[in-house]
């Protein structure tokens, strides 16, 4: 009986997540062409072939990967940097820097608009300093092809997240191991890069995977701030989904299945990184 206790404890959570996983089956079936409600009863790979060959998909996929990669990289660097800066502060008074974690995405999108748009703050500052004649003279930073606004919004939320993951570990490592490194001839800078940072890397890499996965698959920010072409993958997928023609549904489900494939990849990467994290942490003394 006791052997089943952990499973019993896990039952509710497995039930809920199970709902999620179970619900994916329908979509999978639909992507393979099986959608009785629309009169489609034959399994076929034709929808996959069609979508995978479609340049719209290529564009969206590339755009989403680009947005995710750039924002995740910038956020990781920024989060590490911010943590390093805060390291020296006596009071871990990072409340302010953790605030963006609590801000809804839509509001952060609005921030991007009021700061970066052509009628935003930076545009007005530029006008005051450089004498621009009209808003249009300010470069397009929101809803632009480079995704500047989207990346800004992701980074705004993600740097604080990375920082919150890293800072405590950094503080812990920094006390003992940095002292040892200093007595062995390392300057504070070298001690940071050769000891502190490597010891934080496992935690950083798990954070990286999380923010990458999120930026890749989230809807709100690209929807509010992204360019109209190419659309980020989730936005494009949803557009396909909203098509009134039910027979178009399988196309949308192919999009979803592809995104899910990436999701599974992210899960695998995270598990691998997590294994390394718990492996190393055994050795890092408290």
């Amino acid at each position: 009986m006791r052997r089943f206790l952990p499973y019993g404890l896990l039952l509710p959570v497995l039930l809920m997540v199970g709902l999620l996983v179970f619900s994916l089956l329908d979509g999978l079936l639909q992507s393979l062409g099986y959608f009785p409600a629309a009169g489609l009863n034959n399994f076929t790979l034709s929808y996959y072939k069609a979508v995978l060959g479609d340049s719209t998909l290529h564009g969206s996929l590339a755009y989403s990967l680009y947005l995710a990669l750039v924002s995740a990289l910038l956020s990781t660097l920024g989060g590490i940097g911010l943590s390093a800066l805060l390291l020296r502060c006596k009071k871990p008074d990072s409340w302010l820097f953790r605030l963006p974690i609590a801000m809804p995405h839509a509001v952060v999108a609005f921030f991007a608009i009021i700061l970066l748009s052509q009628t935003g703050l930076f545009s007005r500052l530029a006008a005051a300093l450089m004498g621009m004649e009209e808003p249009g003279a300010f470069p397009l930073l929101v809803q632009d092809k480079a995704g500047f606004g989207v990346i800004f919004a992701y980074v705004f939320k993600q740097i604080p997240y990375v920082m919150s993951v890293v800072i405590l570990l950094m503080r812990r490592v920094s006390g003992t191991y940095t002292e040892a490194a200093r007595t062995l001839g390392a300057s504070p800078r070298r001690a940071f890069f050769s000891v502190t940072l490597p010891l934080c890397m496992p935690a950083v890499s798990t954070a990286f995977i999380i923010i990458f996965a999120y930026a890749f698959g989230a809807y709100e920010l690209p929807f509010l701030l992204g360019a109209t072409l190419p659309r980020a993958l989730p936005v494009q997928a949803n557009m396909e989904f909203l098509s009134p023609d039910l027979r178009h549904r399988p196309y949308a489900m192919v999009y979803n299945s592809l995104m899910l494939l990436f999701g599974v990849l992210f899960i695998a990467l995270y598990l691998a990184a997590f294994k390394k994290l718990t492996g190393d942490n055994k050795a890092v003394k408290s």
Binding site: L24, I210, A213, P234, A237, L271
Partner: peptide
């Protein structure tokens, strides 16, 4: 344990638009 851990990661690491649709159907 590993499989369960992986499952528990799903809502965070799977693209939200992908499984929201599933939930809607469900």
């Amino acid at each position: 344990k590993r499989i369960i851990r992986a499952l528990l990661l799903a809502p965070v690491l799977l693209p939200s638009t992908a499984y929201f649709v599933g939930l809607q159907t469900l």
